[in-house]
């Protein structure tokens, strides 16, 4: 496979006395689609949030395209790492189009606003949201909010997209519209890491599944292998609970 996009080396994270991540190593190569699964509280979100340093690792480092993420201008690098939250986190004080264009316009003062807006409209149209451009976050459904959040992350042409349980806060009937968008994105070759509880989705999407247990990567393999022939006891136990 191709070059490394993100690499976590010897990652540990403490919250006070609690050790939440314990010496985790993870490599994400260009075009790879990784699903992170594991029980609640096992450290999946913390791992994902460490990858763009929303959470500062206690030990270890994050290498983004061959450079330490925290060396030089982290904000420039973060523009190339799209992050999608469980709770959408659309900016409550601005409408959809401003949500989408804010960061791009702030970071490149020389860009023409018209051009940026046109790009935003194109992306919105692709995701079937063109009529929501001037709507306020409060007036959108959960599925629409999450699709807007995905557009917002795509605006800066990221090298990689990180999703933290993008459908967990959605009503069941809205889950599919968001998963479909992510699948479509995967078909364009986008590199992505997705924390999910949707095992079927993980199986369809991922070319590697990572099982996190008590802050460690307990097992990682191709989904056919990991789901079909789990090796460690904890994973067998976990799968017996979530599959059926």
């Amino acid at each position: 496979m191709g070059e490394n996009i993100i690499r976590a080396k010897g990652l540990s994270k403490h919250f006070g006395d609690a050790l939440v991540l314990d010496n985790v190593n993870l490599e994400v190569k260009k075009g790879e689609r990784i699903a992170i699964i594991g029980a609640s509280g096992s450290g999946k979100s913390t791992l994902l949030r460490c990858l763009n340093m929303l959470e500062k690792p206690t030990e270890g480092e994050i290498i983004f395209q061959n450079e330490r993420l925290d060396q030089g201008d982290i904000n420039k690098k973060r523009q190339k790492i799209g992050f999608v939250f469980q709770n959408f986190n659309l900016f409550a004080n601005m409408n959809v189009i401003k949500n989408i264009t804010l960061a791009t316009l702030m970071q490149n003062k020389s860009l023409n606003k018209e051009v940026v807006n046109r790009k935003a409209m194109e992306l919105l149209t692709k995701l079937g949201l063109e009529d929501k451009a001037y709507a306020w976050p409060d007036d959108l459904s959960g599925g629409q909010k999450q699709r807007v959040a995905i557009v917002r992350a795509l605006m800066s042409d990221p090298e990689i997209m990180l999703f933290d349980e993008p459908t967990s806060a959605l009503d069941p009937e809205l889950v599919k519209e968001v998963l479909d968008v992510i699948l479509e994105l995967a078909q364009t070759g986008m590199t992505m890491v997705i924390v999910t509880h949707e095992m079927k989705f993980a199986k369809n999407l991922a070319d590697r599944v990572v099982f996190v247990d008590k802050g460690k990567i307990a097992e990682e393999a191709h989904p056919n292998e990991l789901f079909g022939n789990p090796k460690c006891e904890r994973l067998k136990e976990f799968l017996s609970k979530v599959l059926d």
Binding site: L54, N75, R78, N89, L90, Q107
Partner: peptide, 18 residues
Amino acid sequence: VDKGQFEAGRAAGLTNFQ
């Protein structure tokens, strides 16, 4: 203000001040 608002800004590559 919801902590997520702040995180979304930082994750998008805005500075603390922005």
